[in-house]
Design a protein around this nucleic acid. Structure first.
Length: 638
RNA sequence: GCCGGUGUAGCUCAGUUUGGUAGAGCGGCUCACUCGUAAUGAGCAGGUCCGGGGUUCGAAUCCCCGCGCCGGCUCCA
């Protein structure tokens, strides 16, 4: 007999070689409580894996990350089996579970189209109905090699070559065999709700020099309700899509004639951006940043010095009077030249230069995506030049600043990542370690949880990335703070130290929003276009009931305008209901309705976007309320 | 850039399979109505059917080449 300690600390005794399923029974837990896999001493295993000795045992259902992973991974095996049944020549590549679903990559003669998906889904349903058991087998590498070589699974052979160790595991269900670490569900019949979502091309091993495979995306849940809920969520996301809302709300537009990835700001978008810019300028000024500006084009030599040219950074180049110029893809060189515009002493450091700098990058056509990925965008870019000793505080402040601003825009949940030295790097290891340590210290000093992305730093220094969680639970890239050892040397930057000798300053790149375009895209989706009052392009729309009420409406409008409220009057000869509907469609936060009663009393009726209705409101009181609401979203604790 | 899909009025889409000279709703404009909290009615205008070549007596429709957009890969603010 062996002792099995469960999660609730109870101990169950079972014969050696019993399986987690046996333990489930022994412990009186109904086997079909939706348990997916088990963890034995922290190792994820199948529910029918024999227990070899005393152990800690935990059961994982679909609501755990690892359980969900195994569940969806099983679904991907079922999909692969279905594809093999329908297209016997299909070669298997990889088929992992991913956030919200799974995929499998294939190589085959037949080119899949969306019309093929129903047949594959049907075949999958058949496999589920057949309730095929999934069995795990440990075999030697050699055995596996010959197995997959014989069946012509070249990709599996290649994977095997990279696996260390003498034995590997394969999983099999109904004659379908796959190289797989597992664990899996006990049988295909345990899959409840499956859905194929889309097709895509994907390079083998993500390498664009290698062959393009056909990928099928799908998802799986352990109840059809949850699947439906997920599909509803996708629909909701589609409704919030900034690419749909942007033109609808007259925020921005794209034009084939102007070019892909080049944003045009329509009036409402320009207002929104101006509000954001003014806010940023103020917040930077309050924190000792100095606003600077620099040209959009700079001579080619600048980009040689910075290294962009040699790195073949995706820039645009052209000639003027026989001189080569490049359109700036980054603002740093200009800020460095501002630094270098005179000699610097240690007393004037840290020097914090801030620019709303518009940059252009030649993004490959396939990656463009609304406002989130464009070819021309404006960064809220700052460079802090300081001594290594000052860096710690600067980083600390920059992180604090970034979070304060993000909270001001209504984001409260974040994912923080610290990226360390990549394989290709400049500078010496000691420097890297020191800088990485500073970043780590700052994060820990502020009790921020973070993950370490080993080797994900930029070649010139380690960095901190912050992702924002939006109202739909999606994450977006936000602030980034990057150390740079490279540019200060390349541009031969110096300052006179207290020792009256020349030193090289440290440079920190940082942005709070990243790109204004992308951030606006994120904001649109976060609020589905219904911005908080301080950001709303039109804050109040006045709706006269009949044409004769227009003069009174204009009167109110002027009073509000003089208080800085962004207000419009709807002068159309329309029914009030329709005017409300139109203002609502444009997501105007407040509607003011004026008719005979209002003209007579001088008071107004106020209707909020949410439908709240208040009568007999004094105009001054309303304006004061608005101002308070605007300020409340606006003010940040510093 | 690569793989797949897609492109008809400002927007959403029908017409493409089986080639025979383009349609709806919303939106816009005009007129009438002057109205109290999510669509008043009538009329009018609006289309190089993404672009260029080809096949054909004839192309939105078939073929070829581009371009844009969408879903991914890769990359990144």
């Amino acid at each position: 007999m062996i002792k099995v300690i469960l999660k609730d600390e109870t101990t169950v005794e079972v014969p050696r070689g019993s399986t987690p399923s046996d333990v489930l029974q022994e412990a009186g837990i109904p086997a079909d409580e939706g348990m997916v896999i088990a963890e034995v001493n922290g190792e994820a295993v199948d529910l029918d894996r024999p227990l070899e000795g005393d152990c800690h045992l935990e059961f994982l259902d679909f609501n755990t990350a690892r359980g969900r992973e195994a569940y969806r991974h099983t679904a991907s095996h079922v999909m692969a089996q279905a594809v093999k049944r329908l297209y016997p020549d299909a070669k298997l590549a990889i088929g992992p579970s991913i956030e919200n679903g799974f995929y499998y990559d294939f190589s085959m003669e037949h080119v899949l189209t969306p019309e093929d998906l129903p047949a594959i889904a049907e075949e999958m349903a058949r496999i589920v109905a057949e309730d095929l058991p999934l069995t795990r087998e440990e075999i030697s590498r050699e055995e596996a090699l010959s197995l997959f070589e014989e069946s012509g699974e070249g990709y599996k052979v290649e994977l095997l070559e990279d696996i260390e160790g003498d034995t590997v595991t394969v999983y099999q269900q109904g004659g379908f065999v796959d190289l797989c670490r597992g664990p899996h569900l006990l049988s295909t019949g345990r899959l409840e709700a499956l859905r194929l979502l889309s097709l895509a091309g994907a390079y083998w091993r993500g390498d664009e020099k290698r062959e393009m495979l056909q990928r099928i995306y799908g998802t799986a849940f352990d109840s059809s309700e949850e699947l439906d809920e997920y599909l509803r969520m996708r629909e909701e996301a589609e409704k919030r899509d900034h690419r749909r809302l942007g033109p609808e709300l007259d925020l921005f537009s794209f034009h084939d004639e102007i070019g892909p990835g080049l944003v045009v700001y329509n009036p409402n978008g320009a207002i929104l951006r101006t509000v954001i810019e003014d806010f940023l300028k103020m917040e930077h000024a309050r924190r000792g940043y100095q606003l600077v500006m620099s040209p959009h084009i700079m001579r080619k030599e600048v980009w040689e010095t910075s290294g962009h040219l040699q790195m073949q950074y995706p820039m645009y180049f052209f000639e003027i009077d026989g001189q080569g110029y490049g359109i700036k893809p980054m603002n740093c060189p200009a800020h460095i030249y501002i630094y270098k515009s005179r000699t610097r002493g240690h007393n004037e450091l840290p020097l914090r230069l801030f620019e709303l700098g518009t940059v252009y990058r030649h993004e490959r056509s396939g990656v463009l995506h609304g406002l989130l990925r464009v070819r021309g965008f404006t960064q809220d870019d700052a460079h802090i030049f300081c001594t290594m000793e000052q860096a710690e505080k600067e980083i600390d402040d920059a992180i604090r600043f970034a979070f304060e601003v993000q909270r001001g825009f209504g984001f409260t949940e974040f994912l923080v990542a610290l990226s360390t030295r990549p394989e290709n790097y400049v500078g010496d290891i000691e420097e890297w370690e020191r800088a990485t340590e500073l970043l780590r210290k700052a994060l820990e000093g502020q009790s921020l949880e973070y993950v370490v992305d080993e080797g994900e730093g930029v070649f010139y220094g380690p960095k901190i990335d912050v992702k924002l969680k939006d109202a739909l639970g999606r994450y977006w890239q936000g602030p980034t703070i990057q150390f740079d050892f490279n540019l200060p040397r390349r541009f031969e930057m110096t300052y006179a130290g207290a020792d009256n000798r020349e030193h090289t300053p440290v440079m920190i790149h940082r942005t709070v929003l990243g790109s204004l375009e992308r951030y606006m895209g994120i904001l649109i989706e976060q609020y589905s276009g219904a911005f908080p009052l301080w950001l709303a392009p039109v804050q109040v729309e006045i709706l006269p009931i009949a044409d004769r009420h227009v003069p009174f409406a204009d009167d109110i409008r002027e009073r509000m305008e003089s208080s800085g409220i962004r207000v419009k009057v709807n002068r159309e000869s329309e029914r009030t209901g329709n005017k409300i509907r139109k203002a609502w469609q444009m997501k105007v936060p407040y509607m003011v309705i004026v008719g005979d009663k209002e003209v007579e009393s001088g008071k107004i009726s106020v209707r909020s976007l949410a439908g709240r209705d208040e009568r007999d409101v004094e105009v001054d009181r309303f304006v004061a309320d608005l101002s308070r609401e605007i300020d409340s979203k606006h003010s940040l604790e510093v």
